[in-house]
Design a protein around this nucleic acid. Structure first.
Length: 438
RNA sequence: GUGGGUGUAGCUCAGUGGUAGAGCCCCGGAUUGUGGCUCCGGUGGUCGUGGGUUCGAUCCCCAUCAUCCACCCCA
């Protein structure tokens, strides 16, 4: 077995059969970002380990036991990025993007965490994220949430996800609350399970997230972060809710909603689903006003989110929300039989692609009976077969066969063929099936 | 990192202590150059890997790797 070459655990190949699905999703993302005027940022997958230690938090699980960290040949400690925000902030600082400017940015790409793989969770996984710098009001928080809501709308997911919001308050308010919470739990130490006792030191806010039914009463009675916010954060949160209401975006306030990463403050939100088992969060984000400064830039308010692409695609598949047309990759399949026909097919294919750049055409290569070629044409999911044989060659025509409709096949010259296919391109279904839904 | 389930054909899975099967897929055929439905035929597997028990293991045992689900963590 040791000699067998295989992919690294938790790292998956995207097979051709599934790539149209990903492209369907990615096209919606690109269109969405364009709609809001967000610009794409691309950063390396490798960074200095120190970047993540300083941003995510030295004692978080992600940094302590889930990062792919190794020494470079010259002894520098490098890490594969476990998330996108730290890199974007680093790049923004390094390239001077944050000097009294605002930026609305997005990114997409692979992230790496050494976790035990399970449904919707892999060691190399993909995120699409948004980061906005230089804007401090709840208005931009709402824009970012509205942007994500629009994506769910476009993908047909809006009825299957729920928005949860909370406020973590200022850093000071949160630290003060954290102390109160630790006191509270310390007073009831005997009721805490093993996990909770461990978290009491590392991340006490996470105890509020516990799924242990035996602790729910204790958690219910715990002091609530939302009751201990500073005044400015309360106003910010009110502003957030008021604007969400104005946009008709439904939400629930989840006072137990916290973040695994240290850099968040004030607004936090999560889009969740019940359709994916235990990996219910498909998108999460919030405000991180302190991070830029923490990483050496000048104080800059910031807000953003990241979504898990694998989880969203899984959700689309589970709910059967991917329009069939998204998996059609061909309009026409060119085939035929006879002396020198293969060359004629290649020529015709190139002619059609030149005349109709939007046409998706594939030419049959290799041998095969007429029957088997037609079978391949059918399998290819192309709408039409274009057939060329000795008859057509002699007459200077081609035969167009509609593989999916009622119309009988027809012999025609090339000009008519181009006209007919041009009409098809006009009427063929867009693969963005849900975007027109109200 | 912890617990449990599963590894047999490209895919989904049966199966037996005496070296293996189905369906789908793929290929070919059912009169000339016509797919989808049907029928017939065919290709294809060192039964995840290594070791042990045994006269003999795909089957029992151990280990290992992979995968799935949950915990943990998180998008």
């Amino acid at each position: 077995m040791s000699s067998k070459l295989q992919a690294i655990r938790g790292m998956n190949d995207l097979l051709p059969e599934r790539s149209p699905l990903w492209q369907y999703f990615e096209q919606h993302v690109r269109q969405l970002m364009a709609q809001y005027g967000y610009l794409e940022m691309r950063t390396p997958v490798l960074e200095q380990t120190a970047l993540f230690k300083r941003s995510i938090g030295e004692v978080t699980d992600i940094v302590e036991k889930e990062m792919y960290t190794f020494d470079d040949r010259n002894g520098d400690s490098l890490s594969l990025r476990p998330e996108g925000t730290a890199s974007v902030v680093r790049a923004a600082i390094e390239n001077g993007l944050l000097h009294n400017q605002t930026h609305r940015l997005w990114y997409a790409g692979p992230m790496f965490r050494h976790e035990r793989p399970q449904k919707g969770r892999y060691r190399q996984f993909h995120q699409v994220g948004v980061e906005v710098f230089g804007l401090e009001g709840p208005d931009i928080d709402v824009e970012v949430i509205a942007l994500s809501a629009r994506l769910w709308q476009a993908l047909g997911l809006i009825d299957h996800v729920q928005l949860e919001i909370n406020s973590l308050g200022s850093l000071e308010a949160r630290h003060a609350y954290r102390a109160r919470l630790v006191d509270y739990f310390n007073a009831h130490l005997d009721q805490l399970d093993e996990d909770a006792q461990r978290r009491l030191d590392s991340n006490p806010l996470r105890i509020l997230d516990s799924k242990n039914p035996n602790m729910q009463a204790l958690i219910e009675a715990a002091p609530r972060l939302i009751d201990h916010l500073d005044e400015a954060s309360v106003a910010h949160f009110e502003g957030l809710k008021q604007r969400l209401d104005a946009l008709g975006i439904e939400y629930v306030i989840n006072t137990r909603l916290v973040r695994g990463l240290d850099y968040y403050s004030r607004t936090v939100f999560e889009w969740t689903t019940t359709a994916l088992g235990s990996q219910g969060t498909v998108c999460a984000g919030g405000r991180y006003d302190g991070l830029v400064e923490q990483l050496g830039g000048k104080t800059t308010p910031a807000v953003g989110f990241a979504m898990g692409v694998e989880r969203l695609i899984l959700l689309l598949e589970t709910l059967e929300l991917v329009p069939k047309a998204a998996e059609d990759i061909l309009d026409v399949y060119l085939m035929g039989q006879g002396e020198g026909i293969d060359t004629q097919l290649l020529v015709l294919g190139e002619t059609l692609r030149t005349r109709l750049p939007m046409l998706r055409a594939q030419v049959h290569c290799g041998s095969g009976s007429f029957k088997s070629q037609l079978k391949k044409a059918d399998k290819s999911r192309a709408r039409f077969a274009i057939m060329l044989g000795e008859d057509e060659l002699a007459a200077g025509t081609v035969t167009l066969k509609d593989l999916r409709g009622e119309e009988p096949q027809q012999q025609m010259d090339i000009a008519s063929l181009v006209d007919r296919l041009a009409r098809w391109i006009e009427e063929r279904p867009a693969d963005s099936g849900h975007s027109n839904r109200v």
